[in-house]
Each structure stands twice: as structure tokens, then as C-alpha cells.
Design a binder for these strands. Structure first.
Length: 422
RNA sequence: CGGGGAUUGGCGCAGUUGGCUAGCGCGCCGCGUUUGGGACGCGGAGGCCGGAGGUUCGAGUCCUCUAUCCCCGACCA
């Protein structure tokens, strides 16, 4: 995209009402806009990051055999009454409203109950199973206190997947495969080294659920981490008995702050029994459906990444989720601008996502914005090199530029394996 | 929900013991000079000081209520 057409402008000062690093940088760079506490709009650059994260998640979920759907944000009261979770005492983060005729409705903070109701009408036979579906949804949670920028909002984007299985074994098999898929997701978006499978409280059916925790001081969870095993225990279930059970040694554990970027649950047959979702097995017997659910906080991930990858100058996006691969700018006269226009067309045609700073501002301002926005590669078209057909290429995380021809430039950029046009 | 802090042009801030047309920097508009790390000069636009009520000759400044935001805690299927 051409920066002259971008709706946002970068800011030198972050708004005083933001404390969190992720919010400060994302607002300064023009990625998000605060609507109110805990509710942020995603501007073109920010939306691109969200979409890139989604693409990675989507590919990994599809690889599991799951299919994407989209449920409603508006939810009927009935299904939640069945499970008992319509209660404000039990679930204190409900946003509720009512229709003109007085019928109560809720805004989805989870989609477990609605998906079970759907499954009830769609899943009848063992032949229909196993099956898994997922969606990217805006969740609404009326938190008492919003905090940490986009890391904990009242409205946020989440990928949630629901798997229906015929037995505990079948469920477990899918559960383990999904756990691996999750680790792939975190690896691909740049958080692989710092994200750990973590034992957490399990809920009604199993003793544990598994969280995916990214180690960061900005996180709100405390975990006990065994780095060599790449496993951790959430503080909420941490005690000697549990450690012994998990075969983890206390003196191997580090106490660290972390942000939960995913959580997976095994509900066993409980949900099916509770909500009357049964199928007929091969012998015609009614059996409860086994449910497991899998969440990834997409917008929170964006926040965690912003917290994790930055320096004095601004953001440093990992290549797989950067809003663009190249920040292109020309210095000087009509000749370099013409050359930059041309390069922009070439790169775009080759499927490279480019932010082209075509604004009539001084070079220093362009450099600063390139750094603030955290685009992996900066390409400068200047008089001194263009006469030899060379472009100056510099990585965001490295200060020494190199001079390359267009084809070498494209090769270099594409080695980051991101092919998007914008 | 308990505690603490804050609210003055789009953003960051100043504003004395209550006093006259409410200032500064950034950003924005115009003209000119500039052009490899957020340039400079000149000229402009933009604010009933979060809101309501009160005290006073007079309120950005004092009092009461209220809204919103941030932080700590509690909370986080």
C-alpha cells in the first residue's frame, strides 16, 4: 500500500492513558485505535497483522482436518440455561441484552453451548464422527478491569475450535495432534522459543487442561517452568503432590511471568451428557458425544508479539506476521521517485507485500516510521545507487545495509516465505 | 469491586495565593527555503479547560455530585 493513502499517521508521543508497551507502540505506529477501555479497533496495518496470524492458524487447523465456520455473536439464552452457565453468579463476565419483545440474549464470551446445540441437530450417527470445526470470532467478556492494552480486552478476537469424538481414545488422539499443531503455530509466528505447554486447572472432566504460555514480564500468569523439558505448571495448580505426579523436579523449575496465548480442554463425555448430544454407535446404541475445545487468542498474540519484539525505535515484526515485508522509500528527486514507483510495481506484481512511503516528507521521517512500524526490510532508492541499478536493503534488526539488484532483493525478501500482495 | 493517580485544541504538557483576550511543544493549513535519521522561517486554523450543580463581583483554579481513563489488588469457564 501507498503510505500517502493510509488513514493513520504515526505519533511521536504515545497517549498518556496507555501504560502497556503493546498499546503504546501499536497506537503510535497506527495499528490500533482505542475505542474505550478494553476495546480497540484494528486499523489497516493492525488488521493485516491479525489476518496474517489468522492465516497461520487457519493453515494449521485445516491440516488437522478441521473446517472453518462462523457462528453468531448474539446467543440464545436457552442453551446456556441447560448447562447452568447463563447464571451471572457462575459466569460473571456476561454481556447481556434483550430483544424488543423482551427476549433475553447474550453476547458470546464462549461458543461451547451454542456449538453443542448445533451438534445436537447435525450429529446423529457414528458415521458423522469424528468431526471438528473452528472459527475466528469476536468474544465479549465484561471484565471488571481491562488492562495491558490489547492483551486483555472486553472485546477480542479468538480462534476457537471444537472437536466431537466418539470415544475418549479418539478424543485424546485429536487432542495430542492439536497440541502439536498449536506448537507449530507459535513457532511460525515467532514465539516458538518462548512458548511452553503448561499444566493448568482442568475443569470438570480432566484433572488438567493445557495452556500455552509465552514467557514475558507483561503476562499476568505465573508459571513454574522446566526449560529442558519445555513444560511448565501454572501457579494455580502448583504443589508438591502435582509435581510428583507430573514427574517434575522442584529444583529444575523457574518461576516466571507468562501470558496465556492458548488453552485446550478435554470435556470428555460430560458436555454431551449434560446437553443431551448423543449419537448412535455401530450397534445402534446411544452414546454421548465427546467434546474437546481449543482456543487461541489471536488479538492477544498480536499484543504479546508487540511486547516481545521491539526496541527503542519501535516494533520489530517477525516476518510471517509483519503487515508488509518491505518498507520502500525514495530519497530525493523525480528520478528516484520514478525508480521507486517502478520497483513498487515490480515487487507488488511478484506478490511481495510493500508499504511504499510515497509521502513528500524528509528522509529522516521515513526512516523513523519504517523502524516504528517494524517492517522486516527497508529498501531505499537513492541517486547514488540507482544509477547502477542498485537498491539499498536493510533488515529492521540489523544496522548494516547492503546494495542489491531488484532480482536479488526479491529473492532475499521472499526467503522469508511470505507471499502477500497489499 | 477495594485502594491510588489522572482528565486543559488531534497527541504530549504548563497554567502562581481564584483576576483581565487560557499558553507551550508536536501535529494540521498556506507561502518560501530545505531534503540520507522525525529541518527551518514567516503567516494561519483549532480549546466554552470531561459533565452537572454550587460558592464568589469574578472559577481551568475552591466545594459537591457524576462520567471516563490508567495503575495496584481482587477476579480471569
Amino acid at each position: 500500500m501507498r503510505l500517502s493513502q493510509n488513514i493513520t499517521k504515526t505519533l511521536k508521543d504515545a497517549p498518556a492513558d496507555e501504560q502497556a508497551t503493546n498499546a503504546k507502540l501499536l497506537i503510535r505506529g497506527g495499528f490500533i485505535h482505542k475505542e474505550m477501555a478494553g476495546a480497540y479497533s484494528y486499523l489497516p496495518l493492525g488488521l493485516q497483522v491479525i489476518e496474517n496470524i489468522k492465516t497461520v492458524v487457519r493453515e494449521e487447523m485445516n491440516a488437522l482436518g478441521a473446517s472453518e465456520l462462523l457462528m453468531t455473536s448474539l446467543q440464545a439464552k436457552d442453551s446456556w440455561v441447560i448447562s447452568g452457565r447463563w447464571s451471572d453468579e457462575l459466569v460473571d463476565i456476561w454481556f447481556k441484552s434483550q430483544l424488543k419483545n423482551g427476549t433475553e440474549v447474550g453476547f458470546g464470551w464462549s461458543h461451547e453451548e451454542p456449538i453443542m446445540m448445533m451438534a445436537k441437530s447435525l450429529v446423529k450417527s457414528y458415521r458423522d464422527l469424528p468431526i471438528s470445526v473452528y472459527q475466528f470470532q469476536t468474544k465479549f467478556r465484561n471484565e471488571l478491569r481491562a488492562k495491558s492494552g490489547i492483551m486483555r480486552g472486553r472485546e477480542f478476537i479468538m480462534k476457537d475450535m471444537y472437536a466431537f469424538s466418539r470415544s475418549a481414545d479418539e478424543l485424546n488422539e485429536f487432542y495430542e495432534r492439536t497440541k502439536e499443531a498449536y506448537l507449530k503455530v507459535y513457532k511460525r509466528i515467532g514465539l516458538g522459543d518462548n512458548t511452553f505447554v503448561t499444566f493448568a486447572s482442568g475443569g470438570s472432566f480432566t484433572q488438567f487442561s493445557h495452556e500455552f504460555q509465552t514467557v514475558t514480564d507483561s503476562g499476568e500468569d505465573t508459571i513454574y517452568l522446566d526449560r529442558s523439558k519445555r513444560l511448565a505448571v501454572n501457579e494455580e495448580v502448583y504443589n508438591d503432590e502435582i509435581l510428583a505426579q507430573l514427574g517434575m523436579k522442584k529444583d529444575h523449575l523457574e518461576k516466571v511471568k507468562a501470558a496465556e496465548v492458548g488453552n485446550i480442554f478435554n470435556f470428555g463425555s460430560i458436555k454431551g451428557e449434560q446437553m443431551d448430544v448423543y449419537f448412535n454407535d455401530q450397534s445402534g446404541q446411544r452414546q454421548p458425544v465427546y467434546l474437546s475445545s481449543y482456543g487461541i487468542g489471536v488479538s492477544r498474540l498480536m499484543g504479546v508479539i508487540a511486547e516481545h519484539f521491539n526496541d527503542q525505535r519501535g516494533l520489530i515484526w517477525p516476518t510471517n506476521i509483519a503487515p508488509a515485508m518491505v518498507y520502500l522509500l525514495a530519497i530525493g528527486n523525480s528520478k528516484t521517485i520514478e525508480a521507486a514507483d517502478k520497483l513498487y510495481n515490480i515487487l507488488t506484481a511478484r506478490g511481495v507485500a510493500v508499504i511504499y512511503d510515497d509521502r513528500d516528507v524528509r528522509p529522516g521521517e521515513k526512516f523513523s516510521d519504517a523502524d516504528l512500524m517494524g517492517i522486516p526490510w527497508r529498501v531505499v532508492v537513492s541517486e547514488q545507487f540507482i544509477k547502477n541499478g542498485l537498491y539499498e536493503v536493510k533488515s529492521r534488526s540489523n544496522n548494516t545495509p547492503q546494495q542489491l539488484r531488484a532480482d536479488a532483493l526479491i529473492k532475499l525478501v521472499k526467503s522469508g516465505n511470505l507471499k502477500r500482495a497489499s
